[in-house]
Design a protein around this nucleic acid. Structure first.
Lengths: 150, 150
DNA sequence: CCTCAATGGTTAGGGTCCTAACCAATACCC
DNA sequence: GGGTATTGGTTAGGACCCTAACCATTGAGG
């Protein structure tokens, strides 16, 4: 996360750019604004989810499973790959969601190592309940004027 | 952090947009790309810093102190405000940087509660050593082509 | 003055994420 | 077939960030 309020001034960046060829001041400024803006949005999304007993990752786990055309569920390793997070996080997240009654996890009939993770009816309902607010929050955020740049 | 590899398709977003007036599919798609792109950059920056015994926050603490024209140092609460992070994180970060010899923290002569936090010579040197790689990493990242969008 | 609110800072406890190391089952290959 | 590598998953331990609650000092008002 990157929340630095006052980004380096264009002047500072240009001083560096002059010293290190290959670095372009405008590009770096763009990157820092990207980081700050995304971090602020992530913070708002985290607040939204935690107010509803979820988190970014828990929500996205529900999303990728729901998105799956196969009704048989996903493997944890597939979820880790789709979400680009580590497998231990999937283990923990799936455990929490299963305990909350939003997921089921049954042994894979074809592979003794694997488990098939699927949404329960309640999981589908929770996801459907959260999506409108999720999109609304994002749309509202994006509509807000950018902060004035130094 | 938000690393979802396959973002929702335009079609999916449009389905939602049709259902929830006020939500515009293109805008939400932009936001999700913003989140993913920033998360990837944050991950690379974290790796860069941790390879050098730092972290985003530690680095930024050095930056904001260095940037300060006053030579007397900053208060922890000011650092927390500039970086937009909680005060306990500043307490912990400053402690680590002080133990590493990059910062000094001396009682404020005018306020018995406060401490003035300043860079040591070594802290300045470490910051100067990291800045070029930091900017280079960012510039290189921004130069990379965006991932193909679904 | 003397009380009480505000400010500077720390501690305690919890959430999320990571890597490294580890089982168990499957797949490859001679 | 039997040894070895690979794959699915979990456990252990640590880094970083947060809120709530807590001291200590300063400031403001009657």
């Amino acid at each position: 996360m990157f929340f630095l309020k006052e980004l380096p001034t264009r002047r500072m960046l240009e001083t560096y750019a002059a010293r290190y060829p290959g670095m372009e001041a405008g590009t770096v400024g763009d990157a820092l604004r990207l980081l700050r803006r995304a971090s602020l949005l992530l913070r708002e999304l985290d607040a939204y989810f935690s107010a509803h007993g979820l988190s970014q990752s828990r929500f996205l786990v529900l999303v990728v499973i729901d998105r799956e055309p196969e009704a048989t569920g996903l493997l944890a390793s597939v979820i880790a790959d789709r979400l680009d997070i580590s497998r231990p996080v999937v283990t923990e997240t799936v455990k929490a969601l299963t305990q909350a009654g939003l997921l089921t996890s049954v042994p894979d009939p074809d592979d003794g190592r694997a488990r098939r993770i699927a949404l329960t009816t309640r999981g589908q309902a929770v996801l459907a309940d959260r999506l409108p607010g999720y999109f609304a929050l994002i749309a509202e955020f994006m509509g807000r004027a950018d902060e004035p740049t130094a």
